[in-house]
């Protein structure tokens, strides 16, 4: 609980502090430009808002079904299968850290290997299937696809390397 407070509250505060400081500097330098900046930001947000709402719905649904699934199926003794499942679930969904890490902690305590945890945690961060409706607006379809494919490949390499490091992937 304490970790969550440090992670969440302070970064949020920091964002607001940065915004207020920048706005004050901007106001001192040029009032019209400040107003234009706020309008620009607001317009951009309104334009993209439906996409954020779409993802909000998708995430709430996916998360609700995946949490039990993760605890139940990632605990498999088979590293290859566990890693593959971790990779798939991690790629599809997206989670805030204060949910993902305690979940990973639970898995670890149950004896799930670092390799499987790595596959899950890293693909969670790097590959975003659910966030596609948002990413494609800013990066285009090709930009989104290529970046995610590259990220998936990197995740596989990293998982393998971490598995080697912890001596879990042996030949």
């Amino acid at each position: 609980m304490k970790i969550k407070l440090i992670g969440e509250g302070e970064t949020m505060q920091y964002l607001y502090i940065v915004m207020v400081v920048l706005l004050i500097i901007s106001l001192i330098l040029d009032r019209t430009k400040t107003w234009k900046s706020i309008q620009r930001g607001f317009k951009k947000l309104m334009k993209i808002l439906p996409n954020y709402l779409k993802i909000l719905v998708l995430l709430a649904l996916v998360m609700s079904f995946s949490e039990d699934f993760i605890v139940e199926y990632l605990g498999t003794q088979n590293i290859l299968l566990g890693g593959l499942l971790g990779l798939i679930i991690g790629s599809i969904t997206m989670m805030p850290g204060f949910i993902a890490y305690p979940l990973a902690g639970v898995l670890l305590a149950r004896g799930v290997s670092y390799t499987v945890i790595a596959a899950f945690v890293i693909s969670l961060k790097m590959v975003g299937v659910v966030t596609y409706p948002l990413e494609k607006e800013y990066m285009g379809v090709k930009g989104t696809l290529y970046r995610n494919i590259a990220s998936l490949i990197i995740t596989v390499i990293l998982t393998f390397m971490i598995g080697l490091y912890y001596g879990e992937v042996l030949f």
Binding site: L23, K36, R40, G41, L56, P96
Partner: peptide, 21 residues
């Protein structure tokens, strides 16, 4: 839903104002 909605509600407005600036 509330977890994500709260985050977005708090983060997006200041983030986009900073982007505007």
């Amino acid at each position: 839903f509330l977890i994500f909605a709260r985050d977005m509600l708090l983060i997006l407005p200041p983030a986009f104002i900073i982007i505007g600036l």
